[in-house]
Amino acid sequence: MKPAGKRSNAPIFWSLFGAGGMLAALIGPMLVFITGIAVPLGLVLPADAMSYPRMLAFAQHWIGKGFLFAVVALFLWHAGHRIYHSLHDIGIHAGMGARLACYGLAMLGTVLAAWWLLAIGF
């Protein structure tokens, strides 16, 4: 009988992955519709719904900031984790390189999103 191995730190990444997946499932399609279809084609929403002043005001409000940060960061962690595991599935085994590339990019995106959201001011 073999003893249980070292505790995995996967829960950190799995939780971020799960949160991002949940958020993507709940609002992803809606975001694609608004930003990619409705606003550019002038359907349903007013033409200036995503104009620069409106979006700036949105990003300057603390609720808007929180929303943008959650969407950008969690979507990135979700994607990073999914890609990391998919690389493993197709035979590129998860070494430090794959880990750094996938989670590193998500981390970078998270830091940049936080930085820019704070830089825009309140």
Partner: peptide, 10 residues
């Protein structure tokens, strides 16, 4: 301990 290990559930 088995569930939580690196060889575990994740």
């Amino acid at each position: 301990d088995v569930v939580n290990a690196e060889e575990g559930v994740f």
